[in-house]
Design a protein around this nucleic acid. Sequence first.
DNA 1: CCGCATCCGACATGATACTG
DNA 2: CAGTATCATGTCGGATGCGG
Lengths: 131, 131
Amino acid sequence: MVTIRNENARTRSQDFVLRENCPQRRIHYILSGKWTSMVLYALSHGTMRTGQLERTLPGVSKKMLTQTLREVEASGLVKRKVFDVVPPKVEYSLTALGETFIEPLRALYTWAENNAAALDELDRNQAQNQR
Amino acid sequence: MVTIRNENARTRSQDFVLRENCPQRRIHYILSGKWTSMVLYALSHGTMRTGQLERTLPGVSKKMLTQTLREVEASGLVKRKVFDVVPPKVEYSLTALGETFIEPLRALYTWAENNAAALDELDRNQAQNQR
DNA sequence: CCGCATCCGACATGATACTG
DNA sequence: CAGTATCATGTCGGATGCGG
């Protein structure tokens, strides 16, 4: 007769805990932004101007694009180059750090391409429930 | 003599466009959830019960934990096993598909661990600006 | 122990209009 | 072309309480 009895309450200590400031939580800031990762991905294909980015990401508003670019710039992932001409011309490109970030991101996107089925389920789920 | 002239307006067509339903946008649904990726990551260490997950992710509310679990379950990334006992006992674990997703996710987390500096910048940026 | 329903505040996103 | 400012709004996430 097997008695479960509390599963050894404290004896079997928790293997690991994802605390408030663990890297896994902090990187989420990059991933959570609606446009952040895609901007980085777009720039991984080469330097782009603002308007170019805008056309690469249909549906993005100027406001969000600018905001996103400021964030990735502040984090050191993207470099902003301003040409002092008229009309204005600004170029964005990945920094060395940004290049390193692209690799795992690309792996994630590759997974997404190879698993459209799972994504379909997600969409269906999304439609039914609230979020 | 090199003339720039409009960058060849339409001649040099856009290399690529991240359209509304591209995989890169759709996978964002998984990543954007505040707890989704961390739940998956936690489960990559083995089967866990609800309360165990709760303790692994300090700060998560019952509501969000349940909601997140329902989502990853509906998408086929996580398996839910209910034991018909009292008090109730439920175990969550990754499906085969979930296991495959963990790999690129782990790559991303590894990057995060190796680049805490960039994450610090993000935090500072986050504090100053609104988001 | 596990899960659901409800209410509610905060904030990210988007539309629009304006500047240089 | 690039960017800012303002306002409207949807919704995500957390608190709380109930139920099996």
